[in-house]
Simulated scan of single mutants.
Amino acid sequence: MTDDKKLVNRVIQGDRQAFKTLIQQNERLVAHMVYRIVDIAEDREEICQDVFIKVYQKLPGFNFQSKLSTWIATIAYRHSLNHLKKKKKILTSDLDEDLVFQETSDLIDQKTPEYLFSQQDTKNLVHRLIEKLPVQYKTVLTLFHLEEMNYSEIVEVTGMPEGTVKNYLFRARKLLKEKLKHYLVKEEPQ
């Protein structure tokens, strides 16, 4: 029996320490999912807690047809999207670059070239640019690069076809690259 199966069995049997361990092993994943989808900071922590309540409630029905982490990511993803729907936010599939990045220009223009080229600032810039992407783009980038999930796992989490996942990943990378290049060229001394 694998470690995940043992852990799940212990949680189902009422072992509180086992559930605490399950949370600790997956809290980063859940936070990444929720924080990439939900923009309102006050809602994020509550949603993360709700996800683990749902995990606890649904755990007896989990049958290990996928990895435990993939199953938990799916719950986090769907719960976050449901939250957005309740808030009546519009999810966009098509990208309008001007709308996505208009606020980012203001952030960049305020900084000196020395500050822009520092490693931490570049990392912050990339994170800010990612935050401006549509939900689907943020999600696939997070799952692929931060959570190191493969395409089939991302398909399982999001319910998107594999071609769509690959397409969103390609578009998101391309947009980030173009915007980074645009701002770096903009900041070069003339």
Rank of each mutant, 00 (worst) to 15 (best):
V51L: 04
K87D: 08
L169N: 13
R171Y: 00
K138M: 10
D15H: 04
V185S: 03
K86C: 05
V11I: 04
L184H: 01
D3H: 09
D106S: 10
K89I: 15
D3I: 14
T2C: 15
Y183W: 12
L95E: 11
K58P: 05
S66R: 03
L133I: 04
E187S: 11
V100L: 04
F52C: 03
M160F: 11
L7R: 06
K186N: 09
K186P: 00
K89V: 15
R44W: 01
I37H: 00
L125H: 05
D39I: 06
Q57C: 10
K86I: 06
S152R: 14
S118I: 01
L129D: 10
R128N: 12
N124Q: 08
S105H: 12
Q17R: 08
T70P: 04
V55I: 10
Q65A: 14
E114R: 05
S69T: 05
R16C: 11
E156Q: 07
F117G: 10
Q65K: 12
Y168M: 15
N63G: 10
E156G: 03
M33C: 15
T142I: 09
K111P: 06
S152P: 00
E103K: 13
T21K: 02
K111M: 12
D43G: 03
R128L: 13
S80H: 01
L169H: 08
Y151Q: 14
G163R: 10
R16H: 07
K186Q: 07
S93V: 15
L59I: 03
N167M: 15
T112N: 00
V100T: 11
K5Q: 15
V55R: 03
T74W: 01
K88Y: 04
N26S: 07
D43N: 05
I47N: 02
D109H: 05
E131M: 05
M1H: 09
T112I: 02
R128C: 11
Y137W: 07
Q110D: 04
K177A: 09
V30Y: 04
T74H: 08
Y77D: 12
T158F: 01
L176R: 06
H145G: 08
K5F: 09
T112Y: 00
D39F: 01
I90A: 02
R78E: 12
A18V: 08
K54V: 12
Y35M: 05
N82D: 11
G163C: 08
K67N: 07
D121F: 09
K177H: 06
P189N: 04
K179G: 08
V100C: 05
C48N: 02
I47Q: 02
Q57G: 12
P113K: 03
Q13I: 02
V157N: 08
H79M: 14
A31T: 02
L184K: 03
H32G: 05
G163K: 12
I108Y: 01
Q65V: 10
L133H: 02
N63T: 13
F64G: 13
D15N: 09
D121W: 11
L141S: 03
Q136H: 07
K177I: 14
F64T: 07
L129Q: 05
L22F: 04
S118D: 14
Q65R: 14
D109R: 01
H127A: 13
V135T: 15
K87N: 02
R16L: 13
H79E: 15
F64D: 12
H127F: 09
